Computed example of a mutant assay.
Amino acid sequence: MPLLTAKDIEQLLANGKTNAAHIRADGNTEDVKPVVKLFAPWGGATWLLSELDPDDPDLAFGLCDLGLGFPEVGSVRISEIESVTGPGGLRVERDRFFYATDTLRRYAAEAQRLGYISA
């Protein structure tokens, strides 16, 4: 199963284009809902991604948690996530049942409070 579906990529790029335009105009961004949740089935690593850079679609932005108790908002390369291999050859997976109910900022605030992403 691919990490990102065509629909995910379309929405992630749309969010990225919107925020790139906002940054050029006034330096601010929209607080959008995450589009996709990725996770390592063998541990606590989780990523809630909200956008892809329209100039570099391998570069995603979102809430990242490597399972060490320090979730943070930032950028990550999709190719790096795809290259991660766990025990027995397990790979990072997309949560097919994830549906964002809140914005990235709110997920981030909760994750900072808890020390992990609870989505």
Rank of each mutant, 00 (worst) to 15 (best):
L12Q: 02
P57H: 07
F70N: 09
F61W: 07
P2R: 03
D56H: 08
D31F: 11
L38Q: 13
L38E: 13
G67H: 00
R24K: 14
I9T: 14
L104Q: 11
D8V: 13
R77F: 06
G88A: 06
A109E: 15
L4F: 15
V73Y: 00
A14L: 13
A6T: 13
K7N: 09
P87L: 14
S75L: 11
A21S: 07
T46Q: 12
Y116S: 05
S79Q: 13
G43F: 00
E10D: 14
R106Y: 06
R106I: 01
L59W: 03
R96F: 04
G62C: 02
I117P: 15
G86H: 10
A14W: 11
P57K: 06
P54H: 10
N28M: 07
T18F: 08
G62I: 03
L48D: 09
T103W: 02
H22E: 14
D26T: 00
A108I: 12
G27H: 03
L59C: 15
G16Q: 04
T5F: 02
A40L: 04
P41D: 08
G89V: 04
R105E: 08
A109R: 11
G67Y: 03
D55K: 05
L13G: 12
A20V: 02
E93D: 10
L3H: 05
K17H: 07
L12W: 04
K17C: 12
L66G: 13
G43Y: 01
A6P: 02
Q11T: 15
L4D: 01
E30N: 05
V76R: 14
L52K: 02
A109T: 07
P71L: 12
R91S: 10
A119S: 10
A14T: 15
G86P: 09
R106N: 14
G43D: 09
F97N: 15
G16I: 01
A40Q: 11
L114W: 00
V92Y: 04
V36G: 04
W42S: 13
K7G: 06
Q11E: 15
L13C: 04
P87S: 14
F98S: 12
P34N: 06
F97H: 15
